[in-house]
Amino acid sequence: MQDTAVTVLYFAWLKARTGIAQETVAPPPAIVTVGALIEWLKGRSPGHAHALADVATVRVAVNQEYVRLDHPVRPGDEVALFPPVTGG
């Protein structure tokens, strides 16, 4: 678990749909990109599947930097999943 652990944060309606603000997950070694991680996370619960159903509506940050879906995910990363931002 420790070797492959990734922290996943959910905000706004992704948090509401998953029912989770933060979780530590241990994806299999084959999961090496953000896109693959999201596909894998969908299998964790019906809430996850609902929240992540339309990846086009999900924005991703790794270690607090915006990234695209082909960005690598490494053990120890903080991956945040959230809707397009609506501040200001």
Binding site: A12, Y66, P84, V85, T86, G87
Partner: peptide, 24 residues
């Protein structure tokens, strides 16, 4: 730039409930 890049999200509370604001 703040409105499209800073990670803030607004939820609106009305008589009919609370809903997340969509990006424009």
């Amino acid at each position: 730039w703040l409105k499209t890049k800073a990670p803030f999200w607004k939820a609106e509370e009305t008589a009919s409930g609370t809903s997340w604001v969509d990006a424009r």
